[in-house]
Nucleic acid binder design. Structure first.
Lengths: 199, 199, 199, 199
DNA sequence: TGATAAACGAGACGGTACGTCTGGTCTTACG
DNA sequence: CGTAAGACCAGACGTACCGTCTCGTTTATCA
C-alpha cells in the first residue's frame, strides 16, 4: 500500500515500479536499524535502494511517511502485535509486557520503534497518522483483552480498562526512552494495574 | 551550570561570558518553543543569541546537551516539577497528572518536553544523560510521595510504588506522544493504579 | 571549456548550466580585478554569480583552476597576446614590451596577471598548469617571432632566441612585481637583448 | 629590527621580549619553508613560537611584514646576495645566475623567495616595501657590477646596464615561477645580454 | 503501429546547515 | 605594561543533504 493512493491510478503512462517501492522500503528499514531515524536521509535510502532520489520524493513527502509505510507493509514486525489470551489475564499481560520490553532490546525492532516515536514528535499531523497506524490498534487490542478479563472477574473493580491500556503502553514507552533507569518488574506493574494482591 | 565544568576553571585567559551562555540558552529555548527540536539548528541558535557558532560549539557538543542545560538552568519550568502532598494521595496524584497533561497543551512547555523525548531517541548516551537530569528526579519524587501514601494506607496492598511511578510517567508520555488519542480521565488512571474502588 | 572535461559528457542527467559557468567566471574576473587574488573567495564568487557554492566546487577544485579557466575562456584579454610582425623586429618588440607594461597599469588586466603569478606560487602543480595555459603560449610566440627576426639578420649572432624570450617575459614579470622600481625604457631593453648599438 | 619602531621604545613598562621576537621570526621562517606563504597562518606561527597570537599582532600587522623582517634579520640567506667580481664579467654573471637558479631548488630558499613574490602581489605598498628591502639592493649591486664591467669594455656598446639588471632579475623570476618550462642555459642568457658572440 | 504519457535513472541546480579553521579583538592572571 | 592564555564575534572553508529541475530512457495505454 502506498502513501499516495490505495490502488494504481491505472493511467496511460508507465506504471509505478513495485520493485522500486519494495527496494526503497527495505533500504529505509535497514538504515533505520543501523543508524536510527535521526541519521536517516532520503539520499542514503535512494542510494541503497538503487533508485533515484526523485522516485522517493514522488511517492513519499517525508521520512515519517516512509516509516509509516514500513509499519503498514509489515516491514516492522512487532512480536507484540497480538495480545495473548490464555484465559489468565495476569499471565497474558506479563507475557505481553515482557515481550514488548525484550523486543526493544532487539536491534531489529528497537530502533524502528524509536523512529516511530521521533517521527511522532515531528508534527502533530504525523503523530496522529502514526497513532492510527501503529499505536492505535495496539491500544484497541489491549482494551479488548482487558474487557474480556473484566468479564472473567480478573480485574479489580477499581480498574478502568482504558486507563490500564494507557498505563501499559505508557510503561512500554517509559522503558524504551529511559535506558538508564531500572524499571519495575513486569509482574509488579501488571499486579499493580489489576489491583491483585501480591501472592 | 555549564555542560563542561561545574564551576569556572579560574584560568589565566579571558573568562567565559556568562552573558553569552544565557543568551544561547534563551535562544535555544525560544526556537524549540517556536519550531520544535527537529528544526532546531546550531546556526539559528547562535544567530538569535547574537553570538558566534564557534562559541556554541566550544561549550556544547550536541543539540541534546543544550536542551539538557535548559532543564538544569530552569529555562524549562515544568509546573509539575513537584508532587503536591496534601495528605490525600489520590487527590494529589490526580492534580499532578492533570497538571502535567495540561502543561503539554501549553505552547511554552509541550514542545520542550517533546524536545527532550526526541533528544533521548538520538543515542543511548544522551538518553541516559537526559534521564538523570530531567526524568529521573521526577521519578524519584513520585516514588517518595507514593511511599508516604503507602505508609498512610492509601495504596492497595497489590500496588508497587516503583511500578506505579513507571506507569504514571509512562501515561504522561503516552498522552504527550498521541495527540490523536482520547486518553482515559486522570481520576480513572489514578484509581486504577491505587487499587481503590470507584466511589 | 571547463576544468573537468573538454566537451559535454552527453550524459543522462540534467546538463550543466552554461549560464552558471559563465556567471561564475565573470564573477571571479570582476572580484580579482577589484580586490586581487588573495582576497578572492569561493564564497564571494558564488554569491556574485548568483550560484551556489556547491556548483563552484563541483566544477573547480581550487581558486587557481578558476583563474586558469579565465585565461582559457578569454575573460582575461591580454592586449599582448600576439606579437606584432611588421618585419622590423626591434620596433615590434619595443611595441610589445610597451604594450605589456602599459597593460599592467590597466586595472582591467594588471590584477589578473598578478593573480596568475600568485596562483603559480601556490603549488608546483598549479604553476605547471598555469604555465601551459597562459605563459607558455606567449613564450612560444616570442621565440617564433625572434626566429623570424634572426632569419632576417636582425639579431646579433651572440643572441639566443630562447634566452631572449626568457629575459623578455622575465622583464615583464619584474616590472609587474616591482611597482616601486624605475625600470629601464623598453627600447633600451630590446636593444640590449638584440645586441644592436644605440643609434 | 621590528616593523614598529627602529629602536627600543624605552617606555616605562615591561620591555619587549627579544626572545619572543626571535622565536616568532624563526617559527615563521620554518613554516614558510615547510608549507609556503599561502599556508602560513599567524595562528601556527604563534603556536610554534610558543607565544600568544596577540604578541604577534602587536608587533606585525601582516604576514608580509613578518616575511620582510625575515629578510632584514638575515633569516633568509640568499647565497646570491653578493655578485662576484673576479674581473671577468661574463663568468661572474653566469656564476650568479646559476647560483640563483640552483638556490630556488633549495628547499631552504625557494619557498621564501616565492613567499616574497606572493607578499608583493598582496598590495602595492607591500610590494614597494619588499622591493626596497630585498630586490632593490640586488638590483643596485647588479648595476654596479655591470658598470664596472662596462668600464672594462666587457659589455657591447648596445647594452644598457639598468636594462640588463632588469632582464637578469626578471629571468630569475621567470625561472622561479615556471617550474614546467625548460629555460635557456645561463651562459646563453648572459651572452645574449652582454652582446658577446658565441665562442 | 505509432503517438502519447507517466515513471524511471541520472545528475546539476540554488540552498541551508554542518563542524572546523583562522582572523582580529578583548579580557583576564602573571611577572 | 608586556606576556601567555584563552574566550569572543566574524566569516570562509569544504562536505552533506535538501527539494527541485531537466535530461535521456523505458514501459505502458490508446488512437
Amino acid at each position: 500500500m502506498t502513501s499516495e493512493t490505495a490502488s494504481a491510478p491505472r493511467g496511460r503512462g508507465r506504471p509505478r515500479s513495485e520493485q522500486a517501492r519494495i527496494a526503497i522500503l527495505a533500504a529505509a528499514r535497514d538504515l533505520v536499524l543501523e543508524s536510527g531515524y535521526e541519521q536517516l536521509t532520503i539520499q542514503a535510502i535512494a542510494a541503497r535502494a538503487g533508485s533515484s532520489r526523485q522516485t522517493v520524493y514522488r511517492w513519499w513527502t517525508s521520512k515519517a511517511l516512509i516509516v509509516a509505510d514500513l509499519v503498514m507493509d509489515g516491514e516492522l514486525r512487532l512480536p507484540t502485535a497480538t495480545i495473548p489470551d490464555t484465559g489468565d489475564l495476569e499471565a497474558d499481560l506479563v507475557a505481553w509486557l515482557d515481550g514488548a520490553t525484550s523486543a526493544f532490546a532487539d536491534p531489529q525492532v528497537g530502533p524502528l520503534v524509536l523512529a516511530l516515536v521521533t517521527a511522532a514528535t515531528d508534527s502533530e499531523a504525523e503523530a496522529r497518522l502514526l497513532y492510527e497506524m501503529s499505536t492505535g490498534p495496539f491500544h484497541g487490542a489491549l482494551v479488548d483483552r482487558l474487557l474480556r478479563g473484566a468479564d472473567a472477574g480478573q480485574i479489580a473493580t477499581s480498574a478502568d480498562p482504558t486507563a490500564m491500556a494507557d498505563a501499559l503502553i505508557g510503561t512500554v514507552l517509559f522503558r524504551a526512552l529511559t535506558p538508564g533507569a531500572r524499571p519495575a518488574p513486569s509482574a509488579a506493574v501488571v499486579r499493580t494495574l489489576l489491583g491483585i494482591p501480591r501472592a
